[in-house]
């Protein structure tokens, strides 16, 4: 075992290294590549927060994209410059039409509104279990899309809100990613996380040991929604457009796939899953165009990336049904003992 001081130092060094690398990337790489790096960061945060709800607490939610949508729209409406707002959303009520918040408060309010939505729908829905809960949260996703499409005065309906300022940059994304990981790590290494895992293992026994099911489930659900809301808002201000279709089934399922591939009840799993499933499709996309390697030219193979990805998914699920990382967790001891530690042995 390494001592705590040393681990803290290593973690700090790793963080500094990460941001130095990002800084260098920012200078050297093209906007296209930086966009991918930013999407990796956002996806990591989204999947790690999804893992808290789905993996650690066992509340299998398919509503993550719904919370992203809420966060994205709220932040977009709040941060839209007044001039544009008057043109794009003339029907907004006065108090909203005359507000232009800077990015940080917009993000936080976006996250909070998403968390409040989670609280409201969570209270009745979290009494359900397993498939029923998954279907109910999927229902929430549908409701959110319908509401967004119909609330024309606030959202411009199906046309979406465009012309958002591109506030989101590498720093916003990766600081948010680090905060998300830190908060989730703190939660799972506290009484709250243990209570959540106990609920996942056996909810009756957890309740019989004094764990308040509703409270802990709601907590996991709302924290997940909060980060999903901010993630959605960051995403919106990266792409600069939000439409009801930005956050549909596709997005929920791709997040769930990332989570399952990496390992649902592990932060490390979330990071690995999100990184792989964001990067690999982008790499494969290059194949579709067709490349010439050493005189041998490969013709364009349209759709090959999706086929390869699907095959990889099937293989991973067969070979490692609990995900690439499983429920293990990264630890600095790894380098010393050459052995993975289960997360429960991690020190606080």
């Amino acid at each position: 075992m390494m001592n705590l001081q040393k681990k803290k130092l290593y973690t700090l060094l790793a963080l500094v290294a990460l941001f130095v690398i990002l800084f260098i990337c920012n200078m050297l790489l093209s906007p296209y590549h930086m966009r991918i790096i930013n999407l990796v960061g956002i996806n990591i945060a989204l999947v790690v927060s999804l893992n808290l709800t789905n993996g650690f607490c066992g509340v299998f939610s398919l509503g993550h994209a719904g919370f992203m949508a809420v966060g994205a729209y709220v932040a977009a409406i709040l941060s839209l410059p007044l001039v544009k707002k008057a043109i794009i959303l003339p029907e907004l009520p006065k108090w909203l039409g005359s507000v232009e918040l800077s990015f940080l408060p917009s993000l936080i309010i976006g996250g909070l509104v998403a968390a409040i939505c989670a609280l409201i729908i969570g209270y009745p829905v979290l009494r359900l279990r397993g498939h029923y809960l998954a279907v109910a949260t999927l229902g929430f996703l549908v409701v959110i899309q319908v509401v967004i499409t119909q609330l024309q005065d606030f959202t411009r309906g199906a046309r979406g809100i465009n012309g958002l300022t591109q506030y989101t940059n590498t720093w916003w994304v990766w600081i948010f990613t680090c905060i998300t990981i830190y908060v989730v790590w703190r939660i799972i290494n506290s009484a709250y996380g243990r209570g959540m895992m106990a609920i996942r293992e056996d909810d009756l026994a957890a309740e019989a040991m004094g764990v308040n099911l509703t409270k802990y489930r709601l907590l996991a659900f709302c924290v997940g929604a909060f980060f999903a809301g901010i993630g959605g808002a960051l995403w919106a201000h990266l792409i600069t457009v939000v439409t009801p279709l930005s956050f549909s089934y596709d997005r929920t399922f791709s997040l769930v796939v990332m989570s399952v591939i990496g390992g649902m009840s592990s932060i490390t799993g979330g990071v690995v899953g999100a990184s792989l499933m964001t990067l690999v499709p982008e790499l494969l996309r290059n194949l579709e165009v067709g490349i010439t390697v050493g005189g041998i030219s490969i013709p364009p193979l349209y759709g090959i990336s999706q086929i390869v990805l699907s095959v990889v998914l099937i293989i991973v699920i067969i070979v490692r049904p609990k995900g690439i990382v499983g429920s293990r967790e990264f630890s600095w001891n790894l380098f010393k003992k050459k052995k993975w530690n289960t997360m429960n042995q991690m020190e606080n």
């Binding site: 209570g195 293992e201 009756l204 957890a206 004094g210 764990v211 429960n344 042995q345």
Partner: peptide
């Protein structure tokens, strides 16, 4: 009805944290 995927210590901690 133990929490089989948690450690022995964590099983007791879940109850102790009441």
């Amino acid at each position: 009805r133990l929490f089989t995927k948690l450690t022995v210590l964590d099983n007791v901690l879940v109850a102790a944290q009441i």
